[in-house]
Amino acid sequence: MLIGALVLGSMYFSWSAVAVFLALTAVTLCTGHSVGFHRRLVHRSFKCPKWLERTLVWSGAIVGMGGPLWTIRTHDTRDWAQRQPQCHDFLAHRHGLLKDGWWNLHCRLIFDNPPGFDPGPGIGDDPFYRFLERTWMLHQIPIGLALYLVGGMPWVAWGVFVRVASCTTMHWFISYFAHTHGPQSWLVDNAGVQAHDVPIAAIPTMGESWHNNHHAFPASARHGLYPGQADPGYRFIQLLEVLGLAWDVQTPANLPPRPGITAVSADAVKMLHALKP
């Protein structure tokens, strides 16, 4: 995908192709990666009809980073490791950009004694998710064919190759900074790796870059907790809620009190006071 993006993207540049790239990237990152994969499948931060959940998860698969079961396993392993007093450098992003990028984009960390993994009922035993897990790479083919029929090779180059390469690289890049640099409102007690917010990436990540907030309240569907923190993923969930397609949307205001976190900013202290009964 990266080679295709560099070669075909330059050969078949057009402004309409760039528009297709931007539109598909925004839709799949918001509905799929942020809402379908992360906020629904991993954290169950809201409820929705099964047909909608599967649609959102399919949108997450076509982002091009992995299947749904791999995503949950990777996410849960990383979260488990970062909460330990000591965390491997691979999962803590302790090296420079070049080495960390090579590790995370091209290597795999294998544990001698890995933690248990159970995606839970309705996920690991879901035949559609098992199908997506086996075939997630192939789903770029019908998308590419549809784009070719409408816009030719420029739309394929930018709507598939540039999009997948950009989303995959950006995900690692934001993850690197979200665990190494940036403002913090909360600290998780005894965690070997603390999270940071990456404000400049709030829009392209659909609110996922408010990662310090997310570490403090992982079950919350809302990541942008303070005024001015844009969170398009949460706004999309709110839209689903208005349409009657989402319910039991969890936020810090209706979640049980979270032990084991310490507020370290004025906004966080103010929020804690507001949450107290």
Results as ranks from 00 to 15, higher is better:
Val42Asp: 02
His215Met: 04
Ala268Ile: 11
Leu41Glu: 03
Gly67Ser: 06
Phe217Gly: 03
Pro183Tyr: 08
Trp155Glu: 07
Gly144Leu: 08
His214Trp: 07
Ala221Asp: 03
Ser34Asn: 14
Ser265Ala: 14
His196Ile: 11
Thr74Gln: 11
Pro68His: 07
Trp186Tyr: 12
Gln229Glu: 13
Leu41Cys: 08
Gln84Val: 00
Lys50Thr: 15
Met170Ile: 12
Ala165Ile: 06
Ile72Tyr: 05
Thr168Glu: 00
Phe21Asn: 02
Leu225His: 12
Leu105Arg: 05
Tyr129Pro: 03
Ala230His: 14
Cys87Asn: 05
Leu132Pro: 04
Asp126His: 15
Gly228Ser: 11
Leu187Cys: 13
Leu225Val: 13
Arg44Asp: 08
His43Cys: 09
His181Asp: 12
Ser16Lys: 06
Arg130Ser: 04
Leu255Phe: 07
Gly64Asp: 01
Ala5Lys: 06
Gly4Ile: 04
Gly116Asn: 00
Phe177Asn: 01
Ala178Glu: 03
Asp125Ser: 13
His95Asp: 14
Gly60Asn: 06
Leu255Gln: 09
Ser220Ala: 13
Thr74Trp: 08
Thr55Ile: 12
Gly124Leu: 04
Leu97Phe: 15
Leu239His: 02
Gly260Gln: 03
Pro232Thr: 13
Leu109Trp: 10
Gln194Cys: 06
Gly224Lys: 04
Pro154Gln: 01
Val188Arg: 11
Phe117Met: 01
Pro277Lys: 15
Phe13Cys: 00
His181Pro: 03
Gly144Phe: 11
His33Met: 13
Leu6Thr: 10
Ala61Pro: 00
Trp70Ser: 15
Lys47Tyr: 01
Arg134Asn: 08
Arg163Cys: 07
Trp186Ala: 04
Leu56Gln: 00
Ala191Arg: 03
Arg44His: 11
Val27Gly: 07
Phe13Met: 02
Thr205Ile: 01
Val150Asp: 00
Lys50Ala: 15
Leu52Ser: 01
Phe177Trp: 12
Leu145Trp: 03
Thr74His: 14
Val57Ile: 15
Val160Cys: 10
Gly122Arg: 04
Leu132Thr: 12
Leu22Asp: 00
His75Phe: 14
His214Asp: 03
Val150His: 02
Phe117Trp: 05
Leu138Ala: 14
Gln238Met: 12
Gly224Cys: 04
Met65Cys: 04
Gln86Leu: 15
Ile3Asn: 02
Ser45Cys: 10
Phe37Pro: 00
Val63Glu: 00
Leu8Trp: 14
Ile261Pro: 07
Gly192His: 05
Leu29Gln: 10
Thr25Trp: 04
Ile141Pro: 00
Ser34Asp: 05
Gly120Tyr: 08
Met1Phe: 14
Phe217Met: 03
Asp189Tyr: 11
Arg44Gly: 06
Ser14Arg: 05
Val42Met: 09
